[in-house]
């Protein structure tokens, strides 16, 4: 198995709550080392207490079978919202979640693109999201927390 093969397999492991978003596009894959004996994958955890972390780990190991995989989290190099790829941004938008826009104080509506939005709750349905409302299209939406 080559490094590219590993990456390809990891693209099939999605965030458990955003079905089309892979952990690769989420920017969670930190390093891949392939040795004749096994594959070592290091992932960056998103939010420390995210209940999906163990699930993702198990699914990454399963996706790499029959190769023997050692998948672990590196808590020393924090994931940042800026690690999400451009494709990841598009997938978040198509799922109705505004991707983090580094440094910008306004959040664009993922549905109509308007900047006439406001935060209705700092906390959302998961650790990584806040709730917003769009005054242009009158729709609620979620936004990824910019950490």
């Amino acid at each position: 198995m080559t490094r590219d093969d590993v990456m390809e397999r990891l693209r099939t492991v999605n965030d458990p709550e955003i079905p089309d978003l892979s952990i690769v596009d989420l920017g969670m894959v930190e390093s891949i080392i392939v040795t004749p004996e096994r594959v070592h994958v290091t992932l960056r955890p998103t939010f420390i207490g995210c209940p999906g972390l163990d699930w993702i780990l198990d699914h990454a190991v399963a996706a790499l079978q029959p190769a023997k995989a050692l998948v672990s989290y590196d808590f020393e190099h924090p994931w940042s919202a800026s690690d999400i790829t451009e494709k990841g941004h598009q997938q978040l938008r198509s799922f109705g979640i505004a991707p983090p826009d580094g440094g910008s104080t306004t959040v664009s509506c993922p549905l109509c693109g308007s900047q006439e939005t406001h935060q209705s709750s700092m906390f959302g349905a998961t650790l990584c999201r806040s709730l917003y409302y769009c005054r242009q299209c009158q729709q609620p939406f979620e936004a990824w927390k910019p950490i």
């Binding site: 808590f75 906390f123 998961t126």
Partner: peptide, 24 residues
């Protein structure tokens, strides 16, 4: 209200995650 419930669930989960990291 519901916003406070969301805040409670997120902050409580965060704190437990922080504890787990420190136990590690």
């Amino acid at each position: 209200d519901l916003e406070d419930d969301l805040a409670l669930s997120s902050t409580s989960q965060d704190e437990m995650g922080h504890a787990r990291l420190l136990y590690r």
